[in-house]
Amino acid sequence: MPSDDEDLAAVLEQGGLSPYQAAAFVALLDLGAASARTIAQASGVPDPRIYDVLRDLEAAGYVETYEQDRLHARVSDLDRITDDLSARAERFAWASDAVEERYERPHTGLGEARIVGRFETVFDHARGAIEGATDRVQASLTPEEFTDLEPALAAAIDRGVDVRLSLHGDEDSLPAAETLEAACTEARYRPLPSPFVVLVDRSELCFVPHTDSINEYGVIVDDRTHAYVFHWFFALCLWDVWEVHYSGRPTEPPITYAGLRECLRDLEPAIESGGTLFVTVEGRRTDTGEDCSIVGRVVDCTYTTQSTHAGADPTIAAYAGQATLIVATDDGEVRVGGWGAIVEEVEATRITVEAIE
């Protein structure tokens, strides 16, 4: 804080006074009331200038002048002056906060990818994205990060959102099953250092490298194409190969899937053995982008690798290419694809297996 005349005068100059005005006003604060000549001597303002300086201070409301043999001056309205200075200080404080906020605000980069410098910025964005989720959340979290996001995740579960958690960190700190039951559909444990990843509704991505990384940055993406790449990173590296820590998925119909490829992997044995499967598909028309809902019977499935179900279950990577369900409806057969479907009539966002006969 300013403690001497020069420092106080310098601050007053920043508040809008000229150097002579600031010096004269500081001197007058010490003098209380004095003649113009005395003020000039105490402040170092040249005698020829002191009269103009005092009249300018009077016009600004800092002092009032009066005649007493010669021109005198005294401080005018101290409360108004201090209120004005306080208001200026508040504006400077606001400007300081605004500078910091704008600096930390995600900066637009190539496409829809934004780079930020603080983990907290990415984390807060992830929380907001989860709070607005309507379909699916995929997240890679430490137990501590899960605790901070638990209310938002639990609210998403209440809205019917499919929530998948890949947990990493201290195994002894993993949440209990009863805690996870209210906050996720399924959770797996990965005993390796992992990045912070949150994917929401196939379009929003929040990413920060793991704590052992030499790189300190975060990425926020609002773009389906970028999110699709990270979806496969999540599926192949953070999810599919790790043991289930908790699952709240039903084993009997109705069973709901947020991804066609996971659905296809589960249903393929029943389809190949001649079972009859009835499904409801929520999604969008690939030609118009309009939301749609179809109900019917699965008559066939196809995917690029066509690996057999004999022996061990295939990994989700076996379905990474084109994957399609053919559903017979009252209006004819409809080809249903997964995330990024192009050649099918419908891109599925949610598939509910209503019955298997």
Rank of each mutant, 00 (worst) to 15 (best):
D158I: 05
T179H: 05
A312Q: 11
P269V: 01
T65K: 00
L85T: 02
T305K: 12
T280E: 15
N215T: 12
A152K: 12
E131P: 01
Y66G: 02
C206V: 12
V116N: 00
D291F: 11
R261W: 09
D84H: 15
S140G: 13
A36M: 10
L260S: 02
C206G: 13
T185E: 06
A270W: 14
R202F: 07
C237V: 13
R70S: 14
E344P: 11
Y228V: 10
L238A: 05
E344W: 12
I316C: 08
D5I: 04
A87I: 00
V208E: 09
A154W: 03
S194I: 00
P46D: 09
I271Q: 02
E282S: 11
G321S: 08
A129G: 06
L8Q: 09
E262V: 11
V26F: 00
R188C: 00
G117Q: 11
L199C: 03
E181Y: 02
L12R: 01
A10S: 15
L78A: 13
H226C: 01
T142V: 03
H231Y: 13
S43A: 12
V336M: 07
D47E: 14
E204L: 08
F233S: 02
R74P: 01
I316E: 10
L180S: 09
A270P: 02
C263T: 04
A34V: 02
V334L: 13
T352N: 11
E90R: 07
S213V: 08
I316T: 09
V53I: 03
R224C: 09
Q14M: 10
C263D: 05
F230T: 12
A93I: 00
T288G: 08
R70N: 10
G259F: 11
A60K: 15
P195L: 02
R136S: 06
W239T: 02
D172T: 14
D79K: 14
Y217E: 11
F92M: 14
D240G: 05
D223M: 07
A318S: 14
A154G: 10
G132T: 12
V353R: 05
E181A: 14
L57P: 08
R164D: 09
V75E: 00
D84S: 15
E357L: 14
L149G: 02
Q41A: 14
L180P: 00
D291K: 07
A227P: 04
P253S: 07
E67F: 11
P143H: 00
A310M: 11
D47S: 12
G16N: 03
L31F: 01
G259P: 00
G248E: 10
G160H: 09
I356T: 15
R159H: 09
F123W: 03
E64V: 08
A59L: 10
A42H: 08
R285Y: 13
T211I: 12
R190Q: 13
E181N: 12
A9W: 05
G321W: 05
T251W: 10
G61A: 01
E58V: 04
D5P: 06
L205C: 01
I50Q: 02
A9S: 13
T329P: 11
L28N: 08
D47Q: 12
G117M: 14
P191S: 10
N215E: 15
E6Q: 13
E131F: 06
A270T: 15
P175S: 05
T288I: 10
N215I: 13
R335Y: 03
C237A: 15
R136Q: 13
V208Y: 03
T256P: 05
I220R: 08
R261Y: 12
D47N: 10
G289N: 02
Y66Q: 00
S166R: 03
S140Q: 14
R70V: 13
